[in-house]
Simulated scan of single mutants.
Amino acid sequence: MPETPTVGRRERKKAATRQAIADAALELFLEHGFERVSVRDIAEKADVSTTTLFAHFPSKEALVFDREEEVEAALTAAVRERPKGQGVVEALRAHALTSWVAIASDPRLDRFTALVDRTPALREYGERMWMRHADALSAVLAEELGREADDLACSALARFVLEVPILAKGRHDPRATVETVFDLLIHGWQSQHDAKNAGTGS
């Protein structure tokens, strides 16, 4: 029993150190550019050794996408741990509304996006990360729905869902954007189109 508080403190300290490193890295990258900042610069700003830095982050690119594992875990948990009776798409809609709308509305997002867009190494890393998330989500969807691991519908749904943050970025009302995209996923293009035409009398 006495071990539990010690482990808790240790984990909190590790998390705080990791966050401090990530914050220092992003601040330096935004100010000077990704290529002009060294790992040593980041370690000095975060007041840690380079050994400690690499214990938390396997690469310089990973410092920019510091929440990669957390994002993927939350995404798959949204499907696995959804309330009884809730469909997988509705579960993903709820996750998007609680997690992604806030990100799309973050005033720092434009600077972060610009940093990634102008840095080939970050664009490549981001694309690989996106595909890993898509594969992980597709796998959990197939598992939950009793489909084959390579089910095309699950793969397509996973990729569509992961486009939602991109579509919401820069929109006047990110929440309405998320709702519209998920309505389209649930009801389909044709029914949405028909409903709109019926409302206009065309």
Rank of each mutant, 00 (worst) to 15 (best):
P2G: 07
E3C: 02
T4E: 12
P5F: 09
T6I: 15
T6A: 14
R9P: 13
R12Q: 15
A15D: 11
A15L: 10
T17V: 08
I21W: 07
A25V: 08
E27N: 03
E27F: 01
L28G: 05
H32C: 01
G33Y: 03
F34M: 01
R36I: 07
V37F: 04
S38Y: 09
V39L: 15
V39E: 13
V39I: 15
V39N: 15
R40A: 14
I42W: 07
E44A: 15
K45E: 13
K45M: 10
A46K: 11
D47H: 13
L53W: 13
F54N: 10
H56L: 02
K60V: 03
K60D: 07
E61N: 09
E61T: 12
A62P: 01
A62V: 01
L63T: 05
V64G: 01
V64N: 00
F65P: 00
R67T: 02
E68D: 04
E68C: 00
E70V: 04
V71P: 02
V71N: 03
E72T: 13
A74G: 14
T76Y: 08
T76K: 01
V79H: 03
R80C: 02
R82A: 08
V88Y: 01
V88K: 07
V89D: 01
V89Q: 03
V89L: 06
E90S: 07
L92A: 02
H95G: 01
A96I: 03
T98N: 11
I103H: 02
A104S: 10
A104K: 00
D106A: 06
D106L: 09
P107E: 07
P107A: 08
L109N: 04
L109C: 03
A114H: 06
D117T: 12
R118E: 12
R118D: 04
P120V: 08
P120T: 03
L122K: 11
E124S: 13
E127V: 13
R128V: 12
R132Y: 05
A136L: 08
A136I: 06
E144M: 06
E144D: 14
G146A: 09
R147N: 12
R147M: 11
D151H: 14
D151S: 14
A156C: 07
A156H: 14
A156D: 04
A158R: 05
L162D: 13
E163G: 15
V164G: 04
A168F: 08
K169I: 00
G170D: 10
H172W: 07
R175S: 02
T177G: 14
L184I: 00
G188T: 10
G188F: 09
G188S: 04
Q190P: 00
Q190M: 03
S191A: 14
H193L: 06
N197R: 15
G199V: 00
T200E: 06
